[in-house]
């Protein structure tokens, strides 16, 4: 069974440490690599895919080093973040060329099977530059899967996809993971892993901050207090009414409006309109103020 292992891996660029002493093993199934932008996810993926040498430590695909070793690509597929495709080719030509470059015994059959897997068979004779983002992404996945690799690495595969395309791609990844492949995808958006039923590795500032079951991390996410900024026609009266709610942990009154700390995201957002209606108060502003990724991730790290 081919697994990807990183042992004490660091990578620095000049004075900047991009990845700091990461040790992890990827098992078969779907793994999400999460972290805010600049956390070192891409650097990590590039090292796994043999496009960057580790400054320290070892990166192995199966029992072979990833760096300077084209042989690992027999077992590994990569879907890079940069949406680089030969737009002048059709999906059929592109995937077939990949199969030929892998020197497969029957490239045509392998290409057809890969296109079928990502449900692109019907569009395979159209030029890639006429495709939607999601179709292009699926074509690239097909090209990376054409040699039936044990390991598939995807860098931000959901970037720029609409929710439907995202769901489609997630289903595909699950199917592949269910077949016993090792699938790793990176993402900086927590919501993207909602349907994830595997393990999650969280990177923050180059370090592996958390790793484990997605449900555990989801629970931590939904239990964290949410901070909202609220303005209304009568802030003081609204504050009193809000304090009576079990979903509200605290309210701060300021001349510019209210700062509400909610312990239950759903409970609070559902009860606010009801209260406002009952009290005859008009709410003119409701903005979540701590939704920046950094705050979410740092919360995860502290927990």
């Amino acid at each position: 069974m081919t697994a990807v292992t990183m042992d004490g891996v660091s990578r620095w660029f000049g004075n900047v440490v991009a990845v700091n002493d990461v040790t992890m093993t990827l098992e078969p199934g779907v793994t999400g690599l999460l972290g805010p932008n600049g956390a070192g996810k891409t650097t990590l993926l590039h090292m796994m895919a043999g496009f960057l040498s580790p400054s320290r430590g070892t990166v192995m695909v199966g029992d072979q080093p990833a760096w300077r070793n084209p042989a690992v690509y027999r077992h590994l597929g990569l879907v890079s973040e940069r949406e680089a495709v030969h737009g002048f080719l059709t999906a059929g030509e592109f995937v077939l060329a990949s199969a030929r470059l892998h020197k497969l015994a029957d490239p045509a059959a392998a290409a057809a099977a890969a296109l079928d897997l990502v449900e692109m068979t019907e569009f395979k004779d159209r030029r890639i530059d006429t495709y939607s983002k999601g179709m292009r992404q699926r074509t690239r996945v097909a090209a990376s899967l054409v040699h039936n690799p044990q390991v598939l690495l995807l860098d931000e595969p959901f970037n720029g996809m609409d929710p439907r395309q995202r769901m489609h791609m997630m289903e595909l990844l699950h199917r592949l993971g269910g077949e016993g492949r090792t699938i790793l995808f990176s993402s900086h958006i927590l919501e993207e892993v909602e349907q994830l039923s595997g393990t999650v590795q969280v990177m923050v500032s180059g370090r592996l901050a958390a790793s484990g079951d997605y449900r555990e991390i989801r629970r931590l996410m939904s239990n964290r207090p949410h901070v909202f900024a609220v303005s209304s026609t009568d802030d003081r009266r609204l504050a009193v009414a809000l304090m009576a709610q079990p979903s509200v942990a605290g309210v701060e009154l300021a001349p510019t409006g209210l700062t509400v700390r909610a312990s239950d995201y759903g409970g609070f957002t559902r009860s606010l309109p009801k209260i406002a209606l009952k009290e005859g108060i008009r709410v003119s502003r409701l903005t979540p103020s701590d939704e920046s990724l950094e705050s979410v991730f740092s919360y995860l790290v502290e927990a």
Partner: peptide, 15 residues
């Protein structure tokens, strides 16, 4: 420049 080189490099081909 456009990153398509990755498609050729991620194959088990001698450089």
């Amino acid at each position: 420049d456009d990153g398509t080189i990755v498609h050729i490099l991620t194959k088990p081909l001698s450089r």
